[in-house]
Simulated assay, not measured.
Amino acid sequence: MAREFFRADRVADAMRRELAQVIQKEVRDPRLGMVNINDVEVSRDLASAKVFVTFVGEDDPAKIKASMDVLSRAAGFLRSHLAKAIQMRTIPRLQFRYDETSVRGQQLSALIDKAVESDRSHHSSDDGDDKE
């Protein structure tokens, strides 16, 4: 059976696309670098939306916090742009959240690579002992 698409899902998708463009083109704060909108979760009553973001090439927690502050302060501005772009009676309140999933994924990938390399070097040293 085909998956049902709820209105909240369609609104979230439209908001994600529009926010990515508006943040890139309209938010002019030097503290804000390149922003990726990973996901938008809109409540079923369309009253609020959680916007999950990451910052390209940014690892410093102080800079991440500053960028999150910029986005939080720009929420009203962004919401007004969404109101112009998306035809809805009311636009959900925006709550920006830092999305750590990509960072955690990179850390786990690095740990896996390290374990695989360690395993290879361990097996290669075992093979050398068997040949003697």
Rank of each mutant, 00 (worst) to 15 (best):
M1E: 15
A2Y: 04
R3T: 10
E4N: 12
E4S: 09
F5M: 12
F5Q: 13
F5A: 10
F6K: 12
R7Q: 14
A8R: 06
D9K: 01
V11F: 06
A12H: 12
A12T: 13
A12R: 14
D13W: 02
A14S: 13
M15H: 00
M15N: 01
R16C: 03
R17A: 15
R17P: 10
R17Q: 15
E18A: 14
L19E: 08
A20R: 10
A20C: 10
Q21H: 13
V22W: 01
V22G: 00
V22Y: 00
I23P: 01
Q24C: 02
K25T: 07
K25I: 01
V27W: 06
R28P: 07
D29T: 04
P30Q: 14
R31F: 02
R31S: 07
N36R: 11
N36S: 12
V40A: 03
E41N: 07
E41C: 05
E41G: 04
V42Q: 11
R44C: 04
D45W: 11
D45P: 05
L46T: 15
A49N: 09
V51L: 03
V53M: 02
V53L: 06
F55W: 07
V56T: 04
E58K: 00
E58H: 00
P61E: 07
I64G: 01
K65N: 09
A66L: 10
A66E: 13
A66R: 08
M68F: 09
M68R: 01
D69W: 02
D69A: 13
D69N: 13
L71Q: 02
L71D: 02
L71H: 02
S72L: 08
R73D: 06
A74K: 05
A74H: 03
A74S: 14
A75L: 10
A75M: 09
F77W: 09
R79P: 05
K84Q: 13
A85D: 03
I86H: 11
I86M: 13
Q87P: 03
Q87Y: 12
M88S: 10
M88R: 10
M88Y: 09
M88W: 09
R89P: 06
T90I: 02
I91Y: 01
R93G: 00
R93A: 04
L94K: 04
L94G: 06
F96P: 02
R97Q: 11
R97A: 13
S102Q: 01
S102I: 06
S102N: 00
V103P: 00
G105L: 01
Q106P: 01
Q107H: 09
Q107M: 09
S109K: 15
D113G: 07
D113W: 05
K114D: 08
A115E: 14
V116T: 07
V116L: 13
V116A: 08
S118R: 05
S118N: 05
R120N: 02
R120K: 07
S121L: 15
H123N: 08
H123F: 09
S124V: 11
S125C: 12
S125A: 15
D127K: 14
D127H: 12
G128L: 03
G128K: 07
K131E: 09
